[in-house]
Design a binder for these strands. Sequence first.
DNA 1: AGCACGATTAACT
DNA 2: GTTAATCGTGCTC
Length: 212
Amino acid sequence: MNNPESMSEDARLSRDFFKRNTVIVAKDLLGKRLVRLENNHRLAGYIVEAEAYRGEEDLGCHAHVGYTPRTRIMYGSAGHAYVYFTYGMHWMLNIVTEQEGFPAAVLIRGIQPCEGLDIISERRKGLPINHWTDGPAKICQAMNINGELNGIDLCAPNAPLFVENGIAGNAISDEYIKTGPRVGLFSVPEPWKSIAWRFILQMEVSDEIIGR
DNA sequence: AGCACGATTAACT
DNA sequence: GTTAATCGTGCTC
């Protein structure tokens, strides 16, 4: 990471980035670029909202039930995709974090599209641009992310899905980051229901801001 | 084998 | 603000 070449703004995030405390990773993912390659298309968007789900202790985390076929991926090594199906119709994208054996992941809840807008608009037909990718299942619809990508390594050289260092290694100032309770945990006991592990980027991400 | 519920979304009143 | 859509997962019988 000390090599200037690896700090270029388009560098893919390494496994070391994800292999840290989940709450920190969730916050640090704000402003990074989520990239999806399919066929000859490149779709991308800046991550503007993310949530941390951390360990069996966290009663909001799927892994609170322990190691099952569904939670298996979260127990694996960092930087892998945990894609799951819910409400009978929606896919959700998470990125596995922390040490192997400790189940945790970051849920990607919102992105600001920046590449492949024609395809994204086609897939989100009829809806206004600000509602194309402002929810976890909407991102998966827009980027064609489904169970086939569950368990893939986002740090592999040929990965069809990965995250790029959108802001050239610079952290975003806390004044632009809003925190709050995670969404949708209706029957989860406290303190997990209210813990402020949701992170939202409050500013519009522009090429100027990220120094391109 | 059956059941309750879900890290949601879109359409509607 | 309310609600239907729709099915995998984990738990109980």
